[in-house]
Design a protein around this nucleic acid. Structure first.
Lengths: 196, 196
DNA sequence: GTCTATAGTTTGATAGAC
DNA sequence: GTCTATCAAACTATAGAC
């Protein structure tokens, strides 16, 4: 599996060949069929691998109590993960491999990640409407894709992530972020917290 | 060219073959080389075609005077165009064809479209900062990609477009949309316009 | 489990007649 | 400009020996 990811990063995901993959681990191409029924089974395992890693990150995430900060943490976690590895992002979030559809078993971790995202929303907002989660996902996904398309490896869109999330938080009716320092009492207006 | 688009819509963009394309127009595959130097030259012509069509749409766009409505029109125009044709969207906005990079001539219309978008921003906002245009593009692009990925042919993300644009307009400091009917005087607060 | 050998298919592209 | 014939290369996958 590690060799498959390396191969994809070097030569592209769609152009990954069994010969090159086998050569990388000192095997012959036909020997791969002992471990995978077909080439698509390799993509399938990679797909599941990637989403399980997101799931692990998601579970390990420590969310700040302040709602906006929590939302920023969620968004940044996904953004950083998805902009770190192009073939992984392509396999998880696009249809770059013709005729490849993940099996239900491989798809299961992806479903769990989305379920967990709904739970995170319920924690942060007290409710988790589908359309809110959809908008949030599309927002973060749009920045990820733009980053890969127009400035791979750079910061051009990553810099806009917090602003985008704040925009969304405003739309969701979250209270403005408290000034730095200990969180103020909700009933007590923070001195000097007028808009900058 | 029309046959190439049809072929891409039916069998996929990346799996388009010269034989099938030629068969569609009653030609032999080698005869295509009279008109295109290589397969990539066909993709190149398609790429230019698609962006020229966006440019035409963009130039023909009639923008409402009210800034939020204008922004919504711009966004909706791009969204509808990009969700209408999958291979066209893939060719324009992703890197689905390995080793294909548009030639500078084919890329020129895309550059003009982005230049025009900056001008539109200048018209609507009085200014056109790169980061604002970037955020707007990523926002619309994110909804387009989510629409294709999770609900092709549906309305799930298209329904969220106006909300997303309003979110962005708020962030940009545009005044709230006037109630239906004639636009109110800027100095006169609209009755009943407190937050909902 | 791993190998060599190879089947079987598809592809982009070229040669050369007409 | 268009055709037929074909090249040269690549690929996934299978057969069968060890």
């Amino acid at each position: 599996m590690a060799a498959a990811w390396e191969e994809a990063r070097e030569h592209g995901l769609a152009t990954l060949t069994l010969r090159q993959l086998a050569a990388r681990i000192g095997m012959s191409a036909p020997s791969l069929y002992t471990h995978f029924a077909a080439k698509h089974a390799i993509y399938d395992a990679m797909f599941a691998d990637a989403w399980r890693e997101v799931e692990r990150l998601q579970v390990a995430m420590v969310l700040p109590a302040e709602p906006r900060a929590a939302l920023r943490t969620v968004a940044r976690t996904f953004f950083d993960f998805s902009t770190a590895d192009l073939p992984r992002h392509q396999l998880m979030d696009s249809r770059i491999i013709p005729d490849f559809t993940p099996t239900p078993e491989a798809y299961a971790p992806a479903v769990r990640v989305m379920t967990n995202l709904h739970k995170l929303f319920a924690t942060i907002f007290g409710t988790a409407r589908n359309e809110d989660v959809d908008l949030f996902s599309a927002l973060v996904g749009g920045l990820i894709d733009a980053q890969w398309a127009n400035d791979p490896g750079g910061q051009r869109y990553g810099r806009l992530l917090d602003r985008a999330i704040d925009m969304f938080a405003d739309d969701m009716g979250l209270p403005p972020a408290p000034a730095s320092g200990p969180a103020p009492q909700p009933d007590e207006p923070t001195p000097g917290s007028d808009q900058e």
